[in-house]
């Protein structure tokens, strides 16, 4: 037996002993949660079988949960419960008195057509269902996106560059508006490629890059905060709920 193999057995023995002791002291669920957290953290050192185990367990459990939620929250109440309520009344008594809706045959057929993708010969039929999905979604999104991401955004950039309030000139709001207005204009100039970025236009484009860099920096700062929040959350669990070292 080589040294590497011996070390893996020693680590496995330590993990098993710690797991059993922890179950006895802290209970099963907290112990499982704590060990899975440590297994995932172990990836920071390097890829290993403990990490793989936790990762696969997570993927499998998530997929199963998602499937069962999809069945009981979508298929049963929205399809079977409306198409022929007595079919699912044994499982969901609340649906028993619902009237049958034959129109639900349409989504049923579309759903079956979508599953035709699994067949190499009849796969083309699924395009009908896909066309319905794409058409509906595109139609819904077009108008709404135009309003929220285009018209409202333009509206938000059209404001006074000289702001006054009850006490007179508002320096802070004026500076804020000038920065927003200038930032938007310079950002747009940077993405305008039909004219060479030279002279005053080039200066605007370079300012646009600076604005973009500041935006990326702010995003990075927020991302660090988000990740540290998750780390602290896990630490609260490990040191608090599991080890009882912090309250």
């Amino acid at each position: 037996m080589n040294a590497g193999k011996l070390l893996s057995y020693i680590i496995l023995a330590i993990v098993v002993i710690a797991f059993v002791v922890s179950i006895a002291l802290k209970g099963f669920l907290v112990t499982v949660g704590a060990f899975l957290t440590l297994f995932i953290f172990s990836f920071l050192y390097k890829d290993n079988p403990y990490y793989k185990f936790a990762e696969h367990l997570f993927v499998g459990a998530s997929a199963a949960y998602w499937m069962s939620m999809g069945f009981w929250k979508t298929m049963v109440p929205n399809l079977f419960g409306k198409l022929y309520p007595p079919m699912v009344a044994w499982a969901v008594p609340a649906l028993k008195n619902n009237p049958a809706q034959p129109l639900m045959l349409i989504p049923l057929v579309l759903g079956i057509l979508l599953l035709m993708r699994l067949s190499s010969k009849a796969g083309w039929i699924s395009r009908w269902a896909l066309a319905f999905i794409v058409g509906t979604t595109a139609g819904l999104n077009l108008v709404r996106y135009l309003r929220s991401d285009f018209i409202q955004q333009i509206n938000n950039t059209v404001f006074s560059l000289y702001v006054t309030n009850a006490s007179g000139f508002d320096l802070g709001a004026t500076i804020s508006n000038v920065i927003i207005f200038g930032g938007v204009i310079c950002g747009l100039i940077y993405f305008f490629f039909s004219k060479e970025h030279k002279g005053a236009f080039g200066a605007g484009a370079r300012t646009g890059i600076i604005v973009l860099m500041i935006t990326f920096g702010a995003s990075f700062g927020y991302t660090v905060m988000a990740r540290i929040s998750l780390l602290v959350g896990r630490m609260q669990f490990l040191f608090g709920d599991w080890l009882g070292m912090i309250r």
Binding site: S148, N156, T215, Y222, T223, M225, A226, S229
Partner: peptide, 16 residues
């Protein structure tokens, strides 16, 4: 929103 998302939603402030 989460920190990662925050900067994406500042442009909507004041209108949406």
């Amino acid at each position: 929103v989460t920190g990662v998302m925050a900067t994406d939603y500042y442009p909507y402030l004041g209108n949406a």
